[in-house]
Design a protein around this nucleic acid. Structure first.
Lengths: 239, 239
DNA sequence: ATCAGTATGATGTATGACAAATTTATAGCA
DNA sequence: TGCTATAAATTTGTCATACATCATACTGAT
């Protein structure tokens, strides 16, 4: 082990210790979600620290999404949302962004989404179906010049299929992928002449297969759909 | 639209505006990674705010991993790490944890990892191979009573395969899944009598297939490997 | 009972002071 | 000149106090 000598002089600051204490209390559900924290004055007293140190700990916790602070009202244990993690991932991608990113995303989608479509056909609920139908409808009616909105609806459709797997981990896993797409809207097939018709056909076929619980067919259609996207990328984008 | 009257009173606090300003500067790389921020005194002056407000903004940024603060030294723009996002996800799972989680994870792995194995066989480098070989070796030599270490090495092997796809998005996408596994070590097949032999065989076969760049075979072995895991889960764990 | 105004308590910001850690400058020496 | 040890300056961490701003509960008049 190389890390024998580490973590000894690693003194945490006071506010970090406070942060950790509160975080553990939340993790162990001594402070359940939705509950109100004591006021700053009270916590200062019970911790025996200044308001400054306490507040800086609370700022950190709120930045991480563990608590929400309402001015004049109080502080509450917050339900951590996937969105918090996705925000961090997005920031990561913002700084790591390179020209290969789009190709890599398409590759991931080609690999994962057909399987997702298969599972969705098996597990979908009627509500899922309704949502997908609405997406398709919106997509159909959408102004072709509004490529931004088009891409958003496209995205929502695919996310809807992922939700239909009824496996929340699946959704959490794929969310960051989908959240990456909007930022590269302008590079995406949506604004390639005549592509909307194809997308519409694929989506409509997919919906049909999922409605009838045809797993293998859903798989195939999704595969063809994304492979076409990949082809377009290589033809038009990849210089 | 129902939201005509929304988002007007939604005033951000001063420290939040400071946070956002600095965050944007980092995103736009006006403050490049590794660069030193001005001192608190200087920023207070240029922003025209108190030290309190500024510091609370800085605490938030450091909590989110955008900057690191060194007492007596200064503040520096930090390279955001995937680990930051994964920490948030882990917190999320900590609070959302229910008995279905393990089954859901296994399902995701059954769907995704065979495809990953196929791609890994195609794209792996010699370095990837060496890492996988080392994992296998360690796994073989590992004390069977040390199920914790065994599970960690197992994990590392699978993560190594994901890395071998040479697609960083793939890695980022799967990392949270793998990071979930250690916490459920005690529920996992590792401590089921005689299971190590099977795992070893699967891993060794997988390595062989990946070495020879046999994509389809890698797919099949991985599928069988994980389906066995799923079977064991349903047999032993799922009451 | 309804509504306006008020009192109270919560968080947000400002200021000044000192502590603690680090870096930089300085003085002394070889 | 170059090195070392000490001193000084700089920077972040914490404390204390005061006041501003927002949300809610209370009060009282209509």
């Amino acid at each position: 082990m190389d890390d024998v000598f580490q973590n000894i002089g690693n003194k945490l600051t006071l506010s970090q210790r406070i942060e950790r204490t509160l975080e553990n209390a939340i993790r162990e559900k001594k402070l359940p979600v939705g509950s109100k924290l004591p006021s700053e004055r009270e916590m200062c007293e019970s911790f025996g620290v200044s308001r400054t140190a306490l507040r800086e700990a609370l700022r950190r916790l709120s930045a991480r999404g563990l608590i929400i602070i309402r001015k004049g009202s109080g502080m509450f244990v917050s339900e951590i949302k996937i969105a918090d993690a996705i925000k961090t991932l997005n920031l990561y991608y913002d700084l790591k962004f390179d020209e290969n990113l789009l190709a890599q995303i398409i590759e991931v989608r080609c690999l994962f989404e057909p399987e997702i479509a298969r599972l969705a056909a098996k597990n979908r609920s009627d509500e899922n179906l309704a949502e997908l139908e609405q997406c398709l409808d919106e997509f159909e009616k959408c102004d072709p010049d509004n490529t931004q909105r088009e891409a958003d609806i496209d995205n929502k459709f695919h996310l809807g299929i992922t939700k239909s797997t009824m496996n929340p981990i699946m959704q959490v896993t794929m969310e960051p992928i989908y959240s990456l797409l909007p930022r590269m809207r302008n590079y995406i097939y949506a604004n390639i002449e005549g592509e909307k018709v194809h997308t519409l056909k694929y989506h409509s076929d997919l919906l049909d297969a999922i409605r009838n619980r045809e797993g293998d067919r859903s798989y195939s259609i999704m595969k063809a759909h994304l492979e076409r996207t990949r082809g377009i990328y290589h033809k038009y984008m990849h210089k």
